[in-house]
């Protein structure tokens, strides 16, 4: 059955110079699908209607084969790109990406060094240095169809000179993850939708983290002000000192804090939990709808509780 359809398809594929191995593959898949459809009692006419136009199928499959070949032509693919930027004290780093990961590393060098994993894929990105500011930006979307563009995402490794001070770091990403073993800037702003962040030794006058689903982890943080706001992401803070206030806001994400000091700790949640150990704020401002809050300390240093409202969650401080 369906011999006509299969032979039409085979001819249409041949006419588009698709290699014979792929053609055999495709025809066998169609035979498979035709068998299933017949088992379910469909007529030839119904099947043909469901499968669509032979010429269009062949056209799309040919386009797919071409993409495959183009991928091969680009090989070797992982040619990386290295660039240096001669920054001065008080420089800024502005990053806006979609699916790309970023790794920050500390460097003895006096230049900011950026390594990008795949030079070929860098098309459309902006990387510029002007007025002591480095800007890294993803390609601008030009049409709705680019919503479905298959971005594999690049890896940016950025070496941050230890001896030159950074004024501001703005890092905005949709799905990319961020990792840093050392990072210091007067102002740090991290904004992600799904991207995660893992930081060791993070130092800043003002750190602001804003995420929807991303998980963040900070070990050894030193800040004047800390402001974390998230929807579903989880946050873990360890060995962190905040000179002034720490504001932690979450809808349903959980927050874990271990060894932490600050002036006033603001914690506001709908259903997320706050679990804190060895946490010594001067004042605490707690607000929860159904999230549970627990603070467990060895030293019984008293702290002032400014507000303590919880509708159904429990608050335990001991």
């Amino acid at each position: 059955m369906m011999k006509q359809f299969l032979s039409d398809l085979k001819n249409a594929l041949k006419a588009r110079n698709i290699d014979s191995k792929s053609i055999d593959d495709i025809i066998s898949d169609y035979q498979d699908m035709i068998d299933s459809a017949i088992e379910e009692g469909l007529s030839e006419a119904e099947i043909t209607k469901k499968f669509g136009d032979v010429q269009q199928i062949a056209e799309e499959l040919a386009a797919l084969e071409e993409e495959k070949q183009a991928d091969h032509k680009d090989e070797p693919k992982d040619v990386s790109l290295d660039t240096d930027f001669e920054v001065e004290d008080g420089y800024n780093l502005y990053i806006k990406l979609s699916n790309d990961d970023i790794v920050f590393e500390e460097s003895e060098n006096d230049k900011v060094h950026i390594n990008i994993s795949n030079k070929q894929a860098l098309k459309g990105y902006t990387i510029e240095f002007e007025n002591n500011t480095i800007r890294i930006e993803r390609p601008k979307y030009s049409s709705v169809s680019s919503y479905f563009k298959r971005d594999k995402g690049l890896v940016f490794t950025i070496l941050i000179p230890k001896n030159i001070s950074m004024h501001s770091l703005h890092h905005e990403t949709t799905n990319g993850d961020t990792k840093a073993d050392y990072l210091k800037a007067s102002r740090i702003e991290l904004i992600t939708i799904n991207g995660d962040g893992a930081f060791k030794s993070l130092l800043s006058d003002s750190l602001r983290i804003n995420t929807v689903n991303g998980d963040f982890e900070i070990d050894k943080g030193k800040f004047d002000e800390l402001n974390i706001s998230m929807v579903n992401g989880d946050v873990a803070l360890r060995n962190t000192d905040v000179k002034q206030d720490a504001q932690l806001k979450t809808v349903s994400g959980d927050i874990q804090v271990d060894t932490f000091t600050c002036d006033t700790l603001f914690f506001k949640t709908v259903s997320g939990d706050l679990q804190a150990r060895e946490t010594y704020p001067k004042k605490v401002h707690l607000k929860s709808v159904s999230g549970d809050i627990s603070i467990t300390n060895k030293e019984k240093t008293p702290f002032e509780i400014l507000k303590n409202s919880s509708l159904s969650g429990t608050i335990s401080i001991h």
């Binding site: 495709i26 469901k50 499968f51 669509g52 199928i57 799309e60 499959l61 298959r150």
Partner: peptide
């Protein structure tokens, strides 16, 4: 309504990816 679209090339594409 998928009559004017072809689903199999999509399956093949997603498998290749």
């Amino acid at each position: 309504d998928v009559t004017e679209n072809t689903i199999y090339p999509i399956l093949r594409r997603l498998t290749k990816e």
